[in-house]
Design a protein around this nucleic acid. Structure first.
Lengths: 153, 153
DNA sequence: AACTCCTTGGCAGATAATGCCAATTCTGAA
DNA sequence: TTCAGAATTGGCATTATCTGCCAAGGAGTT
């Protein structure tokens, strides 16, 4: 992982479907070594996968919610159980373990308030062992980028 | 935006660099109409762009932080100023306007505690008009997916 | 039933990906 | 400084993919 690899990463974060030729041009390499570096990044796990940024409202999921959750017990088995259940819920796009009063922060997308109520009642509360749930609904997104800041190479 | 478009979206969210032929096979279309649908989704803005999921630690940004910010004043000009300044900060990958006691939720990546202190002092506090800042450091990520839940087609 | 509109599938030329090999650059040691 | 070894690069040829065009199929309407 050197400066060139970081350049490749940032170029792809800005447009992951650019052709290898364009990518090579963007980072001042010829296509061959550029592709080899890319495969290395993929094989070594630095690049986890490629995704697409979709307008959730247009797709049919107009409501985005952040949820902070605190558990009643922090023993290993309760944590394992909770995390496994969370991973299995399709509406949960992200779940992070954090410092602070809440244990977890979840990012969730739903089709509306009805769907959200159903989600909380039948998916989250169904897990059990939850001490508190704190919901914040997203009004709007000021910024959303997948491009990392440049590092002093 | 019909069921087929949603299939295309989810397939690409799972692997945005798959070839059009593979995508077509995955959604039971031939390459031609599949590509046309894809171009439609791109041109209509449903697809905002393509990105790559990179291991931030391997890249050199081992620390991820969520920050909740409340403003002192909520007049239009203060809000515009704050949002414009936030958009210009490379370390801020996401910024959402939310319900609840905090106005904004930011997702930030930094190279370490020193970098974070510099970020708060010289980027965030420099904006002015901020009533409170509440930091939560991410210990680990339980789940992170770009794939939307399927909708009743 | 006939018409129209939208979507699809196949074909062909243009474009891009990728394995191989020689040439170059870089590194470390004498 | 000089040299040897290793890693990286660039070019080429083959293979695979993309993409515009046109005719065919299907759904909905009058």
């Amino acid at each position: 992982m050197d400066g060139k690899d970081r350049q490749i990463v940032r170029a792809l974060q800005a447009n992951a479907r650019m052709t290898n030729q364009d990518l090579a041009a963007a980072v001042n390499l010829s296509p061959s070594p550029c592709l080899r570096r890319l495969r290395n990044l993929e094989d070594s796990g630095v690049i986890r996968g490629y995704s697409v940024d979709v307008d959730a409202k247009a797709y049919g999921l107009p409501m985005m919610v952040f949820i902070r959750i605190r558990l009643e017990r922090h023993t290993g088995s309760h944590i394992q159980e909770f995390e496994a259940r969370i991973r299995a819920i399709d509406e949960v796009l992200e779940c992070h373990l954090m410092t602070g009063p809440a244990d977890y922060l979840l990012r969730v997308v739903v089709a509306g308030l009805d769907h959200y109520e159903d989600f909380i009642r039948n998916r989250i509360h169904a897990i059990g062992g939850i001490a508190s749930i704190d919901t914040s609904i997203v009004y709007g997104t000021i910024k959303k980028t997948g491009v990392f800041p440049a590092l002093p190479s």
